[in-house]
Amino acid sequence: MSNNEKSHRTGGLHIGEPAPGCAKTDPMLIIDHVKKSFGGLTAVDVEHLEIPKNAITALIGPNGAGKTTLFNLLTGFDSPDTGTWSFEGTSLAGIPAFKVAQLGQVRTFQLTKALSLLTVLENMKLGATGQRGEGILSSLIPALWRKQDAEIEIKAMELLARFKLDTKKDDFAASLSGGQRKLLEMARALMTDPVLVMLDEPMAGVNPALTQSLLDHVINLKKDGMTVLFVEHDMHMVRHIADWVVVMAEGKVVAEGPPETVMKEQAVIDAYLGSHQDTDLGVVTGRINIIPEEGK
């Protein structure tokens, strides 16, 4: 499996040595001096970071590293104290969240936001952009939007079929399982025809049976020409599908590089995995004495 996936990887994402803040050959997002504090706590303090285009970038780090806050800042859901950032050359500082989304940078949420009391199909159709029927006056004249709405429905059904949710189209989203809601949220985000998809913990709470299909969906996003930036705690997912890994700790980018090498860096091991990553939890807490395996 992993060999097959690795073959899709695009080499040469970066220029020079892979170090925190290194330049990319074709950056999609460029972040400069973005800083955000909550009271005395500095949640995010990123000097310089570039996210490569048409690649899958993983943003990892321990709890409280500022990953989700950085997501919120980049998508306009929160505003930083200082800093600038640009998306495909357009400066996004001070741009409201809905305009960021209209530019093609779409996000999902750590706590899934399925619109519970809308049907699955309505959830999907809501995602489509440039709908004529969404204007208050034009909505009163069905002739203006009926044809477009039918086209949106076809597109929505195709996506739902891809995500194996087509049989649920008339159910309220509230009746879906946690994993299906994650899928629905991702599918809905794709309805906006995004350029950059930002996934906040796409694997959290998803049962193992759905994990594989979710991974495939993320890989397919890249195949379809999109750029993916995701926050994840699941190291298997990061190793298998990420082309580039950015490691954050205490609000700063402490390391970045291809997954094979970045995981071995001392800064990452210290910051993220801790010094006991190979030790059994029982030993760490001192509750259980583990007998060492033979030959070690």
Partner: peptide, 9 residues
């Protein structure tokens, strides 16, 4: 927030 994330004002 979900609707905002889909680009609606």
């Amino acid at each position: 927030d979900a609707v905002r994330a889909l680009g609606k004002n």
